[in-house]
Simulated assay, not measured.
Amino acid sequence: MDTDTAILAELRGLRRRLPQVTGSVLAGADGLLITRDLNGADADSIAALAAATLGLGRRFADTAGHGDLQETLIHGSHGQVGLYAVGTRALLAVLAAAQVERDLLHRHARQVADQVGELLRARPVTNVPDPAPHFLDNRAPLAVRTPMATLPYNPALPRRRF
């Protein structure tokens, strides 16, 4: 089984194990979509927003002196979104129903994030420079953390391939 298929199987397995999960998105640290198991939502926008939110959460935890960010959970009136770091190069956004048990969601989503992290570690990035060192350095100037000039222009919302 190739890496892309194995990653998608992990995302689909999360939804099977936890029926309150309505979908998930795997994105690069730069916010570009890697893959998704999602119906009826804009996966590209979720990927970009998840990267921005996780970056802010990391900055907030660091500024508050609370150590490394473990996850971010967003509660909405109709559901929840959990954001989990997947190594240093990616993140997992998990969309779930409002009534999902938080500890159960975190346990299953963290397992998937760890498994996907192992799969990604085995396969190098092929088409976009890795922004992870700057993305993780909260003290670097914003222009350094997001090297947009190094990314190739693609008006069709480029997808990061691992």
Results as ranks from 00 to 15, higher is better:
M1V: 12
D2W: 02
T3M: 07
D4C: 08
D4G: 14
T5K: 02
A6P: 01
A6E: 06
A6S: 09
I7H: 01
I7G: 02
I7Y: 01
I7F: 00
A9I: 06
A9K: 13
A9M: 10
A9V: 09
E10R: 07
E10F: 01
E10G: 02
L11K: 00
R12I: 00
R12W: 00
G13P: 09
L14H: 00
L14A: 05
R17H: 10
R17L: 12
P19A: 06
P19R: 07
Q20T: 10
Q20V: 08
V21S: 03
V21C: 05
T22L: 12
T22W: 01
G23F: 08
G23S: 09
S24P: 04
V25S: 05
V25N: 04
V25F: 01
V25P: 02
L26P: 00
L26W: 03
A27H: 05
A27S: 12
A27N: 04
G28H: 08
A29P: 06
A29Q: 06
A29T: 12
D30N: 15
D30F: 06
G31I: 08
G31Q: 02
L32F: 13
L32I: 06
L32K: 10
L32A: 11
L32R: 13
L33Y: 05
L33K: 00
I34F: 00
I34K: 01
I34Q: 00
R36P: 06
R36H: 15
D37S: 12
D37G: 03
L38A: 04
L38W: 03
N39V: 13
N39I: 14
G40H: 08
A41G: 03
A41E: 13
D42G: 05
D42I: 06
D42Y: 08
A43P: 05
A43N: 08
S45F: 12
S45G: 14
I46Q: 03
I46K: 02
A47F: 02
A47I: 04
A47N: 04
A47Y: 03
A48L: 12
A48H: 05
A48Q: 07
A48V: 10
L49A: 14
L49D: 13
A50M: 01
A51R: 10
A52T: 14
A52E: 12
G55N: 07
G55T: 08
G55V: 10
G55Y: 06
G55Q: 09
G55C: 04
L56C: 10
G57E: 03
G57K: 03
R59F: 11
F60M: 15
A61S: 15
A61K: 14
D62E: 15
D62K: 14
T63C: 08
A64L: 15
A64Q: 14
A64V: 08
G65D: 10
H66D: 13
G67Y: 04
G67V: 06
G67I: 04
G67Q: 07
G67H: 08
D68Q: 13
D68V: 14
D68L: 11
L69Y: 11
Q70Y: 11
E71W: 14
L73G: 05
I74C: 04
I74A: 08
I74H: 02
H75R: 14
H75D: 15
G76V: 00
H78W: 10
G79M: 03
Q80W: 03
V81I: 12
G82K: 03
L83I: 13
Y84E: 03
Y84N: 05
A85M: 09
A85D: 12
V86H: 00
V86G: 00
